[in-house]
Amino acid sequence: MDWNRVEGNWKQMKGKVKEQWGKLTDDDLDVINGKRDQLEGKIQERYGYEKDRTRKDIDDWYNRQTW
């Protein structure tokens, strides 16, 4: 997976991230700034998911994106 696409297009991706994980705030998204590890941490914090589930959810979301 080439996460650089997400980082490079973060301003456009924020809306898609928020659609998927609506509990993330705009401030969260500003802090995340496209960094996958930050996204994982915020999802775990807001949703109470374990690390493996969070990684799988992000991978699934990423693979559904149309580039």
Rank of each mutant, 00 (worst) to 15 (best):
W61C: 14
N63D: 14
E50V: 08
K56H: 15
Y49S: 04
Y47I: 07
E19T: 10
E7D: 07
D57R: 13
Q38C: 02
D26W: 01
M13F: 11
N33P: 00
D60E: 13
D26Y: 02
G41I: 02
E50P: 07
K16F: 15
K16E: 04
G48D: 11
G8F: 03
Q12S: 05
D2I: 05
N4V: 10
K51A: 03
K18A: 14
W21A: 05
L39V: 00
E50N: 10
N4H: 04
Q12M: 07
E19R: 15
D2W: 03
N9H: 00
D59Y: 14
K51N: 03
W67H: 09
G8M: 08
T25F: 06
Q12C: 06
R55N: 14
R64E: 15
D26F: 01
N63K: 12
V6S: 04
W61L: 12
K18G: 14
Q38L: 05
R5T: 12
L29G: 00
D59S: 12
Q38F: 05
G41T: 01
R36G: 12
V31T: 02
L29T: 05
R55D: 12
K42M: 03
T54H: 09
K14F: 07
R5S: 12
L29N: 07
D60S: 15
E19I: 13
L29H: 09
D57A: 07
L29K: 07
L29D: 09
M13D: 00
D57Y: 13
M1T: 12
W67D: 03
R5Y: 12
W3M: 07
L29V: 11
N4A: 02
K18H: 12
R53S: 08
K56G: 11
G8Y: 01
W67R: 08
K11A: 01
I43P: 02
K14N: 04
V6L: 04
M1K: 00
Y49C: 03
L24T: 02
E7I: 07
Q12K: 05
G22M: 05
G34M: 06
D26N: 08
N33C: 03
I58N: 02
G8T: 03
K42W: 07
L24A: 01
D60C: 13
D60H: 15
W21K: 04
E19C: 10
R55H: 09
T54V: 14
W10F: 03
V17D: 01
K16P: 10
K23I: 07
E7M: 03
D28G: 01
K11D: 00
D2K: 10
E40L: 14
G41D: 04
K11C: 02
W21S: 05
W21R: 06
I43W: 03
M13G: 11
Q65G: 13
R36S: 12
E19Y: 14
G34A: 03
L29M: 09
K23P: 11
G8L: 01
D28K: 07
D28W: 11
K23A: 13
Y47P: 01
D59A: 14
V31N: 06
W3K: 03
T25N: 00
D26P: 08
K18M: 10
E50K: 05
G34L: 02
Q44C: 10
W67S: 06
G15I: 10
D57H: 06
K23C: 08
Q44I: 11
R55G: 15
M1R: 10
D52G: 12
T25G: 04
Y62E: 09
D59K: 11
